[in-house]
C-alpha cells in the first residue's frame, strides 16, 4: 500500500517538474516548486512508513517549515528585488 502511495507521489512530482520546466511565468515555477515541497513531505512520510522508520516524519516537519519560509522568501525577492525589503524605509530598487 505504501509502495502505491510512494509511486503515486513520485508520479505527481514528475508532473510538477513538467510544470516547473514549462511554466511561462516565474510564478508558475514558484507554484510548482512549492508543490514539489509539499509532495516531498508526503514522500518522506510514506517512505518512513515503508521502511518502518517513523523518524522520517521529523525531517518532514522541518522540511515543511523550511518550504513555507523558502517560498515566501522567493516571492518577496521577485516582488521587491530584495529579501530585506521594509516598506517603512526607502525603496532600494
Amino acid at each position: 500500500m505504501f509502495v502505491a502511495a510512494t509511486l503515486a507521489i513520485l508520479a505527481a512530482m514528475a508532473l510538477a517538474v513538467v510544470r516547473a520546466i514549462k511554466g511561462p511565468t516565474v510564478f508558475d515555477r514558484v507554484l510548482a516548486g512549492n508543490s514539489m515541497g509539499s509532495l516531498a513531505i508526503l514522500l518522506l512520510a510514506a517512505v518512513g512508513f515503508l521502511t518502518g522508520r517513523p523518524e522520517f516524519l521529523d525531517i518532514g516537519l522541518t522540511y515543511g517549515l523550511l518550504n513555507l519560509i523558502g517560498t515566501l522568501a522567493v516571492l518577496r525577492f521577485f516582488r521587491h528585488g530584495d529579501l530585506a525589503y521594509d516598506p517603512g524605509t526607502k525603496r532600494r530598487r
Binding site: 500500500m1 502505491a4 503515486a8 507521489i9 508520479a11 509532495l39
Partner: peptide, 21 residues
Amino acid sequence: ILSGSFFVVVGMVGLVRMPEL
C-alpha cells in the same frame, strides 16, 4: 491512502493541464 494518492496525482495533472496561473 489509495484515494489520497489518487487526489495527489489528480492535483498535479491539473497543474499541468490548466491554462494559466
